[in-house]
């Protein structure tokens, strides 16, 4: 069987990729996609720890299910915000949306 640290490394790599996307992409929708990647990394961690540390208690999977719900809520509201910004300012590029900067 694959040792636990390998799953953790995959999850860490995925998290870093996602975080890079959040920091470096210009398109707001792409940033949303990157956030989904980071949530996924968290989910891999939760399930891997559940499986290897204490599979008799189901908590890890339950938490992962809650993460699904949070991801869905985030995607719904995030996309709604992007649409609304797009409608008002005709852009989805985050650096063009700087009205709160002043």
């Amino acid at each position: 069987m694959v040792p636990l640290w390998m799953y953790l490394v995959v999850s860490a790599a995925l998290f870093c990729i996602g975080a890079f996307g959040v920091l470096a992409r210009r398109n707001a929708i792409a940033i949303l996609l990157s956030i989904e990647l980071m949530l996924n990394a968290a989910n891999i961690n939760l399930v891997a720890f559940w499986r290897y540390m204490n599979p008799t208690v189901i908590n890890g999977q339950v938490f992962a299910a809650f993460v699904f719900a949070v991801a869905a809520a985030e995607a719904a509201v995030g996309v709604a915000l992007i649409l609304s910004i797009y409608r008002n300012r005709q852009t989805v590029m985050v650096e063009d949306v700087n009205i709160l900067k002043w």
Partner: peptide, 9 residues
């Protein structure tokens, strides 16, 4: 961390 997966119950 369990280093060897075979220990996973």
């Amino acid at each position: 961390l369990p280093t060897d997966g075979d220990t996973a119950p």
